[in-house]
Design a protein around this nucleic acid. Structure first.
Lengths: 211, 211
DNA sequence: GCAGAAGTACACCGATCGTTCTACTTTGGT
DNA sequence: ACCAAAGTAGAACGATCGGTGTACTTCTGC
């Protein structure tokens, strides 16, 4: 396997990359197979790390879960955030580009590919069911940050009430990924995109209206 | 749900009707605490049933999970379906009523109440991560049935493309419950309702546009 | 009033959970 | 060359997982 030396992590001496491999394994397994379903045996196996080494880097599995979420939020800002930062697109198209990310495949239900797993933060919230405060906090922090990003872009797009549009688009995106997970089919992303276009254009044309 | 805490009568359990009690306990625990997090010990305890009795009614825990989902879909059609069937409301208002179900509390983040847990089918899909085919099928069946219901109501509301509007509203509702779960705050329901109103009205007005 | 279904208690099974431990090897700076 | 840091393998801990086995006690219909 590739052995890119893990550069020294802040505050601790960099070793031979065990910590990095652990986090990479967590990234993959916690997301694809679930947090509860991933045992320490499996995790250390994939990370190519002994259990002893694991517990020299993390006090517990829970601590790794927290670090896993923290990393997702701060270091590895994935395609979503980048789509909203594309300066080659108009703000409106940036918002729409978000929904095209996973909807590329028009072939229907996952054609032999990996299972769709939705948002790792939401999944963590579902799996822990509110029993792990640190996880709960991380999830809320992430969702609020994402909504803020949407709101900023909504403002750039000239929405009358950017905060309202931002929240609505956040709901829409959450629903698209959640439903895609339940159905194991990216089709809802396309529906969400169409709905987003309507919401954005309406929000620019006239002020928000109550139901 | 006030005194299902056993041990009130030491040595005596619940008596006849074990299967019903088991299913009721599953309803509560699988939903509120998660499927994986609910062990057989806990389950039989709450159901006031001995383990032996449980396994005379169900071949395995997985079988109970399947029955739990099957029941949710067929027998106990909860508020959602009923909201869409209210004949005291116009079709448009029926659709909107859906989003008012859990949004009643304007007090913000769960005020000491039970944690918001979203859709039990979606949660089951997340928890099992595609490893239990019967669960996967049940989830898909439910989501498709719900979308069908929305489509029918969308048609009654006079949408030009009822299927498209139905799917969009399904995404919106899924997002509202999912985000409410992640944030443990029903606020997204209100945002979804506002968005739904826009989508419905646009879907009715746009293509005809005559007057 | 009695057969038998339905229920009870609870010890126990092997497997796996997260975690700790002992014992040993590799690595890199001085 | 030496030593501490960082790594390795893997046995084993107690707890809990889903699931069984044995032996006993109701309740109910006939």
């Amino acid at each position: 396997m590739s052995d890119d030396r893990g550069e020294a992590t802040p505050g601790r001496r960099g070793g031979r990359g065990a910590r990095e491999r652990i986090l990479r394994a967590a990234d993959r397994l916690f997301y694809a197979e679930g947090i509860n379903a991933t045992g320490m045996e499996r995790l250390t196996d994939v990370a190519q790390v002994s259990k002893r080494t694991f517990y020299q880097h993390f006090p517990s599995k829970n601590a790794l879960v927290e670090e896993y979420l923290h990393r997702l939020d701060t270091i590895a800002a994935p395609p979503r955030e980048r789509a909203l930062a594309r300066d080659d697109l108009l703000p409106r198209d940036r918002l729409l580009a978000l929904f095209a990310l996973f909807a590329a495949d028009p072939a229907g239900p996952a054609t032999g590919e990996a299972r769709l797993r939705g948002c790792p933060f939401h999944n963590a919230a579902v799996e822990t069911a509110g029993t792990v405060p640190a996880v709960e906090r991380a999830v809320v922090r992430h969702k609020e940050a994402f909504t803020r990003l949407l709101t900023e872009t909504a403002q750039a797009a000239g929405a009358t009430d950017p905060a309202a549009l931002g929240r609505q688009l956040a709901v829409l995106f959450e629903g698209a990924t959640a439903l895609a997970t339940s159905l194991n089919d990216p089709a809802p992303l396309a529906d969400a995109r169409a709905a987003a276009a309507v919401l954005i254009d309406t929000a620019r044309a006239r002020p928000e209206r109550a139901g």
